[in-house]
Structure formats: C-alpha cells, structure tokens
Nucleic acid binder design. Structure first.
Lengths: 210, 210
DNA sequence: TTATGTGAACTAATTCACAGCG
DNA sequence: CGCTGTGAATTAGTTCACATAA
C-alpha cells in the first residue's frame, strides 16, 4: 500500500474522536456518510481516507465501529504508545501533564523537567518533575525518543539543542519560537496562533471549511 | 486579488514569528530564501506566499523586515484585534489566559466564564472570571463575536449551543470533543492529538516535512 | 435500496524554469 | 551576479460517476 497522505492522517484523529463519542452512545456500526455529515466532509472523502486502513465496510450497515477504531489507531501508530519527556512546567506544560488523554493517543509522558527548584522533585498529574541536569542521563538510560518543549520562547532553542545532544529524535515544540534542529531530527511545531489565523481568515473571508 | 490559499495562511504565523526573532536580533531586511532555509521550505514557495501581501521585495536586499511584518499582520487581520470570551477555566483555559501573546495576534480575550463558584469573581492573568449565567447578557452588551471553549469535553456541546444562542459567530474549540454548530457559524477545532498524529507519522514513515 | 469502493476528471498547491531588475 | 516575481509544468488532494455487493 502506498504511503498514507498527510492530509488524510490529519483527519484521522477527528474520526477517532467521533467514533469514541458514538461508541459511548452505544452505536456498533457507522457509515462513511454519517461520519462525513458530522464532520462537515463528504462521504467519498471519508471512504477514500478509510480505504488506507485495513478496515472494511459492509454495504447497508457501514463499518464496524470497534474494528474501524482499531484500524485507525493502528494507522496512526497509537496502539503502542511511545515514551516522551516534557521540559518546562509552566501553565502550558501543566495543562499537558494533566491532560490524561495522551496514553490513549500513542504518547506516554514519563516525566517532566524544569529549572525551577521549587518545582523540582514535586509531581504534577502523577508525573515527577526532575531537574534539567538529569535530562541527558535519563534519556540515555531510558532510550526515550520524543521530547516536548513547553518552556518560554527564550529557552526553547537551548532545550532543543540539549534534546538533540541527548539522543532525542522527535521534538514537539509548543514554545512560540522558531527553533532549528539538525537534519534527521523531526521537529513538529505547534502554534496556537496558526489555528487562530485560520479561524480569523474563515470569519473574515466567509470560508465554511478549513 | 484572488483569495489567499489556506495553505498560505497557515504558514504566515510562522513567517511572522521568525521575523520577530530576526527583528530582535537587529536585522532590517530578510530574503525569501533565508526565510525558507530557516523554516524548511523552498524560496519559491515563500515568494509565492509573500506575493499575496502588499509587501514588495527588492533584488539583492530582499524584503524590508518591518514592512513585511506589517503586510503579513494585515493579511491575517492581526492589526486590529477582535474581542473574545473564554469559557472554562481549567488548566488549559488558564494557560490561554496567561499566554500574553494573543493581543499581538489579533485576539483580545476580554474575560472568562466558569461554573465553579470558587473561581467566579476572581481573576486570572488580568482577566476577570464571571459566572456562566452572565454570558448571554455580556455578549449582548459587548457584541463579542468569538468564543473560546476550554471546558471538559462533556460540557463542550452545551457551551457551544449557549454561545450560538448568545450571538457568537466564531467558535474556537479546544475541548477534545466533536461538537456541531448551525450553518453560518464558523467552528475551528483545535486538536493537540492531530499534531501528535503528524509527528508520529513523520517519525515512523521518515517524512522530513509536515 | 443503501451502502462501499475505485478509476477518471478535476482542482488546489507546489515546484520548475526563466525573465527582470538593481 | 543575487535576488524577486511569475507563467508553465507537475504533483497532491478532492470530487465525480459509476460498478458492486448485501
């Protein structure tokens, strides 16, 4: 099978979230067009997207809900969670540590790191907070490959450099700074203001979808 | 001029963030290819994107940094901030209220709302927290058009309904729930797990860009 | 009839190739 | 040269039209 298009991958989490809601409501099957309706897409698009997974739908009934969930999670690599460390326990870091949903979404935040002595050696949402100077050693010992940056923007580049030198392969950067990493390291920038930009563009220009 | 492509709009905030960094470093001009290098794009793409703004670059020197910043902010509608209300002061709501950057990015969060009596009538990051039953009245009086949902997922749909009935036109939903709104209301879903999906796809499948 | 599944047509977005200007 | 700017070609993504299965 050909590589799944990124545009498709981006829609999978929304499908999964909807499926979880439907499952909670007691549904057992779901049709591509009902997913499409609920999410403001078209039926064909949903079927095309789902065709990249193993899940097979049946005419008249649609897709088996559990089977489809599993197939989507498999395609996303969410059935086996990857370990990660988080650096920077400010209010955003706290929000991520307290958000319980990542374990079900392929990410297992093992612990957090901060420079603030008042925070070090305390816990937040069941995750221990270590001092920064333990970072390299712990990455070496645990083999963690993903690092999450939730520091102020001034510290982001230095933290990224530390992560790379420690052996981290994928960085999820929430700090509002453009950081650079060597080739081979995957950097995923999360920028709330990007979503905001899309919202205001849609409001101003009257775009229904986005 | 033709409507700016959404793909282009999505890149503008990253350009702006980089420009702010360069400005802080004392630069006065910037070339499309240096932006491209820094952001992992190509020079042509950056030039195409910038061509949708008023900014004009000059051969040899590139773009005037201040002029380009202004043009990008203008294209994004960030030069005049829009007022917004936030509902749900949990850890994510708190992170957004404390994040000072929105004023410079076209969004002015006037106040927050919550059901928790312990939080009501206190302040968070200079923003007052009102009880939910004041929401409709305050929207009517202030004419605010954007609502931000940072409640637990169970409450998200009810809050969205309340927002719509109060006259809100654009909803920025951070709750991990698929909510529905009537036609004509712009709904922007923010899903951290979508970004996470892209990161893991890139890690697993060896995609350099995403 | 009601759904999936898919090749073909179309549209959006990106990249190429090169003209133009200081 | 070194940079912008842009029509043309290419690729990625979406939608159409219809075959197929229960």
């Amino acid at each position: 099978m050909i590589q799944i298009p990124l545009a498709t991958i981006r829609r999978y989490p929304a499908y999964l979230r909807l499926l979880e809601q439907l499952e909670a409501e007691g549904c057992a099957d779901v049709s591509a067009s009902s997913i499409a309706n609920r999410l403001g897409l078209t039926g064909v698009q949903v079927r095309k997207d789902l065709a990249y997974t193993q899940a097979e739908g049946r005419p008249k009934t649609g897709y088996d809900l559990k089977e489809l969930s599993w197939a989507l999670r498999e395609a996303l690599g969410w059935n086996n969670a990857t370990d990660a460390y988080l650096v920077g326990v400010g209010s955003l870091g706290e929000a991520l540590l307290r958000f319980g949903g990542f374990e079900n979404h392929g990410l297992n935040i093992l612990a957090a790191f901060d420079t603030d002595e008042k925070k070090v050696n305390t816990s937040m949402g069941k995750k221990k907070i270590f001092p920064m100077d333990k970072f390299k050693d712990l990455v070496a010992r645990t083999g963690v490959k993903i690092g999450i940056i939730t520091t102020p923007k001034e510290a982001a580049q230095a933290v990224a450099d530390l992560m790379v030198s420690a052996g981290i392969k994928g960085i999820w950067n929430f700090a509002p700074a453009e950081i650079s990493v060597p080739e081979g390291i995957v950097l995923q920038q999360v920028d709330l203001t990007t979503e905001l930009a899309v919202l205001s563009a849609r409001l101003q220009m009257g775009r229904e979808n986005g």
